[in-house]
Design a protein around this nucleic acid. Structure first.
Length: 185
DNA sequence: CTTGGGATGGTCT
DNA sequence: GACCATCCCAAGG
């Protein structure tokens, strides 16, 4: 298993968002292992992106977006859900992160179903908060390093696919930026 | 299949 | 005090 090096994440957030498609997200909980292939991502940048959490200023909530690349930025939303992002930006930006929106489950599908309290495979990990549920991701993983072997990390996955670009989902600002990216397997 | 509303609370203005 | 980078279920076609 080969980890993605820190430099992978030290590029423009939009490039990294595309680059993460097809990569593998792995979660280890005790002796259980959950993994899947990333199939949909969204880029959120800094001062040039009114839809980004980092657009206004650094706060306690979004501080991970300003800190070391290749780590997890996790936020709580709608009073009940967590969403998982990967911190990524080049040296020109002060903040940036990639939201992981969809994953194709590989290992640990039964554990995911338990975590989600749902049985349907099709809707197991096809949304950001669903991924957090299935992979048991919450505030405890805030800031964890994804470039090395730990409870949560990213490795090489499958080969390149055709990338489809769309407007990002659930935002009202900067909809002209086609920063939602997805692949089909 | 699509649509609409409710759940539920941290964060920022 | 309003706003969410959401999800689920029930009701209607």
């Amino acid at each position: 298993m080969s980890f993605l090096p820190r430099e992978f994440y030290a590029r423009d957030t939009v490039i990294v968002a595309k680059g993460l498609l097809g990569k593998k997200l792995v979660r280890k909980i005790g002796n259980k292992k959950i993994s899947g292939i990333i199939t949909e991502t969204e880029a959120y940048r800094h001062k040039d992106d009114p839809a980004s959490h980092a657009f206004r200023k650094k706060t306690e909530r979004n501080r991970a977006m300003f800190e070391e690349v290749g780590r997890a930025y996790i936020y709580f939303t709608y009073g009940m859900y967590f969403c998982f992002n990967v911190v990524a930006r080049n040296s020109k930006a002060e903040a940036g992160a990639v939201l992981i929106r969809a994953i194709h489950p590989e290992k640990g599908i039964e554990v995911m179903k338990e975590n989600r309290k749902k049985d349907e495979l099709k809707s197991l990990t096809d949304g950001p908060a669903k991924i957090a549920q299935a992979f048991d991701i919450n505030k405890k993983q805030y800031g964890v390093d994804l470039t090395c072997n730990s409870e949560l990390f990213i490795t090489e996955g499958i080969g390149k696919r055709k990338i489809i670009s769309s407007p990002r989902i659930g935002i009202s600002a900067a909809t002209e930026n086609l920063w939602n990216f997805k692949i089909t397997l």
